[in-house]
């Protein structure tokens, strides 16, 4: 009999290799998402029974400015980070591409902060931004710019920018490294042709390299967007979402509802909102950036 079984299983045996991974992904991604959808229609508090309350959690989300505000904060933060990280990374990569002697050294230096954890970066930068004992204000007054000194994280108008700057500092080396791969993939005869035609360094960048870097833009923008939309640790450590909820991101709101007030049902509804936002943004970006690549 085992032989007969062997003959039946033979053609599909190779696919059984995917079963362990599928079990893990099924149990810890697919099932949790379904459970999250289910919980989002309940008033579950972590203990006892979960009562179905229909769309009440979603109505609560839509009717309180606090939650819509946290979506706004998340999107504004993501926009700031993606724009500045991409631009600064591009400038570094364009310069380093022309400077082979220092390229690897500078790439490694720029990459260093990405080795550190959000917790430590958050702590150190919180102290750098501190009003009286912090490094930034002390530095500003040392170079005669005292008038710019302020409580960076205590002021609702600067707090989000300050955290975005920290995030960009952490990951700009990543963006630079990806752009450098893009530069390296540009066929050298194209660059050579540009040089023979007497194109200046800027003209080569603008008319030859920039269009050919489209795939690197796609990778960088999608990676940094997906990485930034879920921002939690930096505001959690640096501001706790304050001042005046100016840095209260959606993930911070999820964790606060979960472990601050045990609103498991509502936290699940917020998670589903987050999933929808991430999926929507990813689809729009993918379509737009791929089309942009094809047009180049």
């Amino acid at each position: 009999m085992p032989e007969a079984w062997g003959r039946v299983l033979q053609p599909i045996r190779i696919y059984l290799f995917t079963v362990p991974a599928l079990l893990v992904i099924g149990a810890f991604f697919v099932y949790p998402i379904l459970l999250s959808v289910n919980l989002s229609f309940t008033n579950f508090t972590g203990v006892g029974v979960a009562n179905y309350i229909g769309w009440a959690n979603y109505e609560r989300f839509l009717s309180r400015s606090r939650y819509l505000n946290s979506v706004g904060v998340t999107i504004k933060f993501t926009f700031l980070v993606v724009v500045f990280q991409t631009l600064i990374g591009l400038v570094f990569a364009a310069l380093l591409h022309r400077m082979p002697a220092i390229r690897n050294f500078c790439r490694a230096v720029l990459f260093t902060p990405a080795m550190m954890s959000f917790v430590i970066v958050g702590y150190v930068w919180q102290f750098i931004y501190a009003p009286y004992t912090g490094g930034l204000n002390a530095f500003l007054s040392a170079i005669g710019l005292e008038s710019l000194a302020r409580g960076w994280l205590g002021d609702p108008s600067t707090a989000l920018f300050a955290i975005a700057a920290t995030h960009v500092w952490m990951f700009v080396g990543y963006t630079t490294a990806i752009f450098l791969v893009g530069f390296a993939n540009i066929p050298s005869d194209i660059e050579e042709a540009g040089r023979l035609d007497g194109a200046s360094s800027w003209q080569r960048f603008r008319y030859l390299e920039l269009p050919l870097l489209a795939p690197s833009f796609t990778v960088n923008i999608i990676l940094s967007t997906v990485g930034t939309l879920k921002t939690f640790e930096l505001p959690f450590i640096m501001t706790r979402g304050g001042p005046d909820r100016a840095t209260n991101t959606l993930s911070l709101e999820i964790v606060n509802n979960l472990f601050g007030s045990y609103k498991f049902g509502f936290a699940s509804a917020l998670s589903i909102v987050m999933l929808l936002i991430v999926v929507a943004v990813a689809i729009v970006q993918n379509i737009y950036l791929k089309r942009r690549e094809d047009n180049q």
Binding site: F29, P32, L35, L250, S268, S271
Partner: peptide, 21 residues
């Protein structure tokens, strides 16, 4: 497709149910 779904899901989406599980 299923693996891609796992890759795209931010950890905050699954954190509540994973805690419960």
């Amino acid at each position: 497709l299923i693996v891609a779904l796992g890759l795209a899901t931010p950890p905050f989406v699954t954190i509540t149910p994973i805690y419960v599980i």
